[in-house]
Amino acid sequence: MSPQDDKAKEVSADGAAGPIILFFIIGLAASLVFGWVIFPKLLYSQKKQPLDFNHILHVEAVEEGCESCHFFREDGSFSGIPKLAQCVECHEDVQGEDPNEVKFVEEYVTNGREVPWLVYARQPDCVFFSHAAHVKKAEMDCGTCHGHIGESEHSRVYEENRITGYSRDIWGKNISGLKEHTWERMKMDDCAECHATKELKTDVETLPWPINWLPRPYEKQSGNQARVKTVKEACFVCHK
């Protein structure tokens, strides 16, 4: 190599270092902005509930709290979002002047149509979840998983994941997947948080609903004892 070539290389190296770092930073910053800010906006579509529902108003009017409308059926299964028939028990006619109430009675009650509520907590079909085991037996509070929905005056915007079709509530509002409270996320890991650690023991025979409502590993326990801690082969408890 000639001395002239050496010199040329030196010059070129000195002159290019700045832009290279700059472009690295630009690329880094752009992708961070895209990943953290723009991507979530693109990923979720915003949907409005068919009616704006006021939980506070309803909780005040009923006697048994959440279970007045979200009740357990006789066989121990959970009714979930009320069917029209339940609403009609009180809302056969328009009460008050709220436009939502008018819309509800005119569009749904009169026509006998079910309200197509968007379910924030809907899990994939392969997930088996027994409300009875959690609420009745483990005496968990609805809010542990569902948050303070009972204290809301308006229905939140339902954010639907454009790829999966599920609500944003499952992954959680925080796109990083981190959460502050138990109800902010409903992925499998969040179930596992309790199930991996809790050693709660219950007496199977005293359960008020049919035994076949309990997932299989519970039945497998020796004696009358059951536990919630996930054990080997426990996948099929929830993934039927």
Binding site: A16, P19, I20, I21, L22, F23, F24, I25, I26, G27, L28, A29, A30, S31, L32, F34, G35, W36, F39, P40, L43, P124, N161, I163, T164, Y166, W171, I175, S176, G177
Partner: peptide, 30 residues
């Protein structure tokens, strides 16, 4: 070189953003 540097920066940034991880999860559910 600048272009490559931009791409590398972008890749690094993407890796520490939720995008690839969330997309992996979502596409498996999809």
């Amino acid at each position: 070189r600048s272009f490559l540097s931009f791409v590398i920066g972008g890749a690094a940034g993407t890796a520490i953003s939720p995008l690839p991880w969330k997309l992996t999860d979502d596409s498996s559910i999809w």
